[in-house]
C-alpha cells in the first residue's frame, strides 16, 4: 500500500484524507461556530458559515443566567481532586507491584482490572442509598470518592506498565549506596517516573471530567459538574442553540487540549498496556 509515491498521488490522497478528517471533525467545528451566532442565526436555513454577526453574547449570557463558573469549578475540583487522591493510592500500589512483586501480584492486577468491568448500574442502587443515608448525595466529597475509585484500576495499571520499564539495576545500585526506601523513591524512582505519572494524571483528568453516569445520578445542584450543566439543556425553554453551543465549547475546550497532548499515552492507559 506504499503506492502513493508520485507527487500527484500524494496530493490527491492528502486532499481525500483531509476531506474525511474534516467531516469527522465537523460537529465540533459547527458547535464552536454556532456559539458565536445570535440565537436566530443559529437556527437559520440555509445555515450561515462565515457571513454572520460574530458575537460573544452567548458566552456572557451562559455565565450570567446559569452561573457557568460554578459548574466549571465543580468539574475542576472533581477531576483534579479524584486524580490527586488516586495518585497517592496508585503510585504506592503500582510501585510495590512493579518492584516488589509477589506470586499474587499478577492476580491482584487482574482482579483490579475486573472491578473496572463492573457495569455501574450493578451498584447504582446501593451506592445511591448509602449516599442518601450518609448525606453524601450532591456533595463534592462523595463524587471525588466515586470518581477516584472508578479510575483507580486504570491508574494502577498505567503506572505499573510505566514503572516496569524503569531499569531495576539503578534501584539496586542506590540501595547498595545505602539509600533508604523513602530516599530511593524520592531521588531515584520519581524523577524517572515523572513522565508516566504525568500522563496517568492527564488520562485520569480526562476520564473524570467526562464521566456522565455517576455525575448525573448523584448530583442535583451543589456538586453538579459540567456534564450535568449541559444535560440541563435537554429540556430548554425558547431558542437555546447558540447558548448550548457556547456552554458546550467552554465545557470541552480544556479537555480537548489535554487530550491532544496525551493521545499517545492514552492508548496505553485505555488498553491496560495490551497495546503500546
Amino acid at each position: 500500500m506504499e503506492n502513493k509515491q508520485t507527487p500527484l498521488g500524494y496530493v490527491s490522497f492528502s486532499v481525500f484524507a483531509w476531506i474525511v478528517g474534516l467531516l469527522i471533525f465537523f460537529p465540533i467545528f459547527w458547535m464552536v461556530l454556532t456559539s458565536f451566532k445570535s440565537e436566530l442565526e443559529a437556527i437559520s436555513i440555509p445555515p450561515s458559515f462565515i457571513s454572520f454577526d460574530w458575537t460573544l453574547e452567548n458566552y456572557v449570557e451562559v455565565q450570567e443566567r446559569s452561573n457557568y463558573f460554578k459548574f466549571a469549578m465543580n468539574s475542576v475540583i472533581l477531576a483534579v481532586g479524584s486524580t490527586l487522591v488516586g495518585l497517592v493510592f496508585a503510585v504506592t500500589c503500582a510501585w510495590a507491584m512493579a518492584f516488589n512483586p509477589t506470586k499474587r501480584t499478577k492476580d491482584a492486577l487482574l482482579w483490579m482490572l475486573s472491578t473496572k468491568m463492573m457495569p455501574p448500574v450493578g451498584v447504582l442502587v446501593p451506592i445511591y442509598l448509602l449516599f442518601r443515608d450518609w448525606g453524601l448525595l450532591d456533595t463534592r466529597f462523595g463524587l471525588i470518592m466515586v470518581l477516584f475509585l472508578m479510575n483507580l484500576p486504570i491508574m494502577v495499571w498505567m503506572l505499573y506498565t510505566y514503572f516496569k520499564e524503569i531499569p531495576t539495576d539503578i534501584l539496586e545500585a542506590a540501595r547498595m549506596d545505602g539509600a533508604t526506601l523513602p530516599k530511593e523513591i524520592i531521588f531515584v524512582l520519581l524523577p524517572m517516573a515523572v513522565p508516566g505519572i504525568a500522563s496517568t494524571m492527564l488520562l485520569n483528568i480526562i476520564l473524570a471530567w467526562n464521566e456522565a453516569f455517576w455525575t448525573l445520578n448523584l448530583t442535583t445542584s451543589d456538586a453538579a459538574p459540567l456534564t450535568a450543566f449541559i444535560a440541563s439543556y435537554s429540556s430548554p425553554e425558547g431558542l437555546f442553540w447558540a447558548k448550548l453551543s457556547a456552554a458546550s465549547t467552554l465545557a470541552v475546550a480544556p479537555i480537548l487540549v489535554i487530550g491532544w497532548f496525551s493521545q499517545k499515552q492514552l492508548v496505553r492507559g485505555l488498553t491496560f498496556g495490551a497495546v503500546k
Binding site: 469527522i24 460537529p27 456534564t227 449541559i230 487530550g259 491532544w260
Partner: peptide
C-alpha cells in the same frame, strides 16, 4: 482532528 470526538463529554 480525527481523534477529537473521543474527548467530547457524552452530554455535549
Amino acid at each position: 482532528l480525527v481523534i477529537a470526538p473521543f474527548f467530547i463529554m457524552p452530554t455535549v
